[in-house]
């Protein structure tokens, strides 16, 4: 078994996958804490569908997929996050509507083209190249820097947006930045880990951390750690068993979440 791992790690591919996966897991987990708390848990899922639609349309009309889908996804994310401010439609309902509409558009646009649905669903982490590594590293740096420098503001806005707004805070700016970062994470992540996994990377670490800790600071830190650790573990398991990485991460996340729930339940019972 060790020999097998040695061979795998002799090339660059698994190293790339490892680096990209860790950075992406941490980024998604950090964004996930605020998204889940703002009742936007499903936004990753919705945006990955929008990304699919944009991808299909870009391929059908002969445009560059990345250059076309990023602005589309970012704009959708921004509009969705803005909805929370006093609109009649609830965030998660809006996400569901957008999600279904995007899937329908994508399916029609993708007709006859050779988009690989399987790699869209599960990603292809072994196809990671150096430019993906650089892009993910930039994204992760941006997210971490923002969380460190503006941590207290992020807490205040997530906890009580109205109060911050009443004090003259620029909540729309925060929402725009969150939307852009979420969009980036989804578009980058989709290519690497697939539509199925990207949403799990956002939701699970946050949910697990919330079972275990009661202060915002601890939840944020725990989510980042849980995200990275569960990705790493699942990556090794998937390589050893030759199973899809995305599916392994989701299953592993589920196990950790189950354990955390059990601890939570025993503490409160």
């Amino acid at each position: 078994m060790l020999d097998y791992l040695k061979i795998l790690f002799s090339g660059n591919i698994l190293w790339y996958a490892l680096i990209v996966g860790c950075l992406l897991s941490m980024t998604a987990a950090l964004l996930g804490v605020t998204l889940v708390l703002k009742k936007y848990a499903m936004i990753g899922d919705g945006l990955s569908h929008v990304s699919f639609a944009a991808l299909s349309v870009a391929v059908a009309t002969g445009q560059s997929p990345m250059a076309f889908s990023l602005p589309v996804v970012a704009l959708t994310a921004f509009l969705l996050l803005r909805l929370s401010e006093g609109s009649k439609i609830k965030g998660d309902a809006a996400v569901a509507v957008v999600s279904a509409a995007a899937l329908a558009i994508g399916a029609i646009a993708a007709r006859g083209s050779n988009i690989d649905i399987e790699s869209y669903m599960f990603g292809s982490i072994v196809a990671v190249n150096l430019s993906d590594v650089i892009l993910t590293a930039l994204l992760a740096t941006a997210v971490i820097a923002i969380y460190v420098l503006f941590y207290n503001r992020i807490f205040a806005i997530t906890f009580d947006e109205t109060y911050v707004k009443a004090g003259g805070g620029h909540t729309w700016l925060y929402n725009a930045i969150m939307a852009l970062l979420t969009a980036l994470a989804v578009v980058v992540g989709l290519r690497l880990v697939g539509a199925l996994l990207i949403s799990a990377l956002i939701i699970f670490p946050a949910l697990t951390a919330m079972r275990l800790f009661k202060s915002f600071r601890k939840v944020v830190i725990a989510a980042a750690v849980i995200g990275v650790v569960s990705f790493l573990t699942a990556l090794f398991v998937s390589v050893l068993l030759d199973a899809p990485t995305g599916a392994c991460v989701v299953l592993f996340d589920l196990v950790i979440f189950g354990m955390a729930s059990l601890i939570h339940w025993r503490k409160t019972a």
Partner: peptide, 14 residues
């Protein structure tokens, strides 16, 4: 929402 009392009160200083 996971927030300690201290975190909530401090946010008034923001």
């Amino acid at each position: 929402f996971p927030a300690s009392v201290y975190e909530v009160v401090l946010s008034g200083r923001l």
